[in-house]
Nucleic acid binder design. Sequence first.
RNA 1: UGAGCUAUGGUGUAACGGUAGCACUACAGAUUUUGGUUCUGUCUGUCUAGGUUCGAAUCCUAGUAGCUCAACCA
Length: 555
Amino acid sequence: MSEEKSLNFIEEIIEEDLKSGKYNSIITRFPPEPNGYLHIGHAKSICLNFGLSKKYGGYTNLRFDDTNPVTEETEYVESIKEDVKWLGFEWKNELFASDYFEQLYAFALTLIRKGLAYVDDSSAEEIAAMKGTPTEPGKDSPFRNRSIEENLQLFEEMRAGKYPDGSRVLRAKIDMASPNMHMRDPVIYRIKHAHHHRTADKWCIYPMYDFAHGQSDSIENVTHSICTLEFIPHRELYEWFINKLEIFPSRQYEFARLNLTYTVMSKRKLLQLVQEKYVESWDDPRMPTISGLRRRGYTPESIRDFCDRIGVAKRENLIDVGLLEFCVREHLNKVALRRMVVFDPLKVVITNYPETQGAEMLVGEDNPEDPASANREIPFGKELYIEREDFMENPPKKFFRLFPGGMVRLKHAYIIKCDEAIKDEAGNITELHCTYIPESKSGSDTSGINVKGTLHWVAVQNAITAEVRLYDRLFQVEDPSSEEGDFKDYINENSLQTVTTAYAEPALKNAKMNERYQFLRKGYFTLDTKDTYARLVFNRTVTLKDTWAKEQKKG
RNA sequence: UGAGCUAUGGUGUAACGGUAGCACUACAGAUUUUGGUUCUGUCUGUCUAGGUUCGAAUCCUAGUAGCUCAACCA
């Protein structure tokens, strides 16, 4: 029975560290910068970090990397916390890099005293020019050999606010000829007279990412600091600071970030979509943000399952969004309540159904996948709506739906036969006249008739109305970022289709925010969290698999 | 054109010198009161060229391709 799941490369490293006795338990961290909303790519990192500490014993900190006051806001801190919680994870400590500003300042002093850091008066342009290029070594700054005393004094004055933004920086003194650009005397502190979302105006100098991240990991005794591939060149620096400062040796490991087909993942691009109104907001249901997916109706379970299935490795990847859709369908199939909703109504009159009879109540199960699920009542009637596309006057082969002279089952109800299509003067079909087979009632069918097709329907008299929003992929091409020109040229203009008046069975009157629905033969839907006030608004999470549509496409 | 990382079906991901497996997709069929679900089956793969070895996806060498690095962003 030991169906062992193979380990990813990070799990292998951890098991090695545990086996060798290097550690008894592990500490990881999820370190977002609070300058935007989390997306599905972050979910991969969250599942990895929290999953690892859960699996191997230990814990995960949530640490906000807030070293750049001009981009960061408390609003983002709150949304990030909400998203991590919603995904189902609990952090041990809620921390901020800004909590360590005093300590980081002390680390900087240590470096200066060791002759390993200096204040540089050069401008940003001058520093860039002296940096060299990947193929040519850089040049030493004229300020590189200042005395320790002078550096100490200048750095203290920087902190004291004596100098304007951009006038000086503190740099680590490493190697201007290093083949690794990040080792060419990187800037580690800059002057920014800016208000910080947590430390307010206490500081006017702020540490750079490289001088904050590794040390923060070290302060928290993070054993395995996991980040994405683009940080590989930073690792040498990460370790340099830890070595020179002689602090806890956290180690950095890098994995490939998630890319998904038919969307973009960079914060910059997502921001453009919001600012330029291609989408409504960060939590627009078409966005790959956690909040967008949540509003779309995705479940935390399905996102975790997805992150589990895509694996963790070091090679670049582009994952088919179809896998995400598979994951959410699989979960929703188990939990969604079945309901009938007609989007584009075609009236059916059952000519042999008694006029005087009140609403006959039929019974339908909430979820056939779940034997424990309840039933709901569905009123039947003489006049019904079916989906217009479920009727064809001249049907092609293998069309199992209604056509003149044809028979179908109305789900949970009776078998009907189409006798006549009524048209207006322009030749448009306005209604269908059908007859029903009284002894074919669901659950007590003695008619002996077998039909190929089963349609969803609602009774005209008892139908309630709702708005339904049908979402499709945001882009027309698999990888918008790799296409020629602006990625926005590839936006799918039809990513949102709104059905303002859909007809729903009355059970949906009591729809709840936390419930998921399967509109029979239509897809999975959930109540919109923003726009449902007096009226019902449903968002389509994902369609059902549709082999008929595929069949038709083939011609 | 310096340095680093990476190459396994259409897409992901395993195989740790010994039968190339799993999932998604696609296709075919069975079941079905959702053209859903479920079940069964099929197709497709080790970047190239050399080498080491009884044996190479795995080790070595050389190519090739993709990605990353020259922010006072993270």
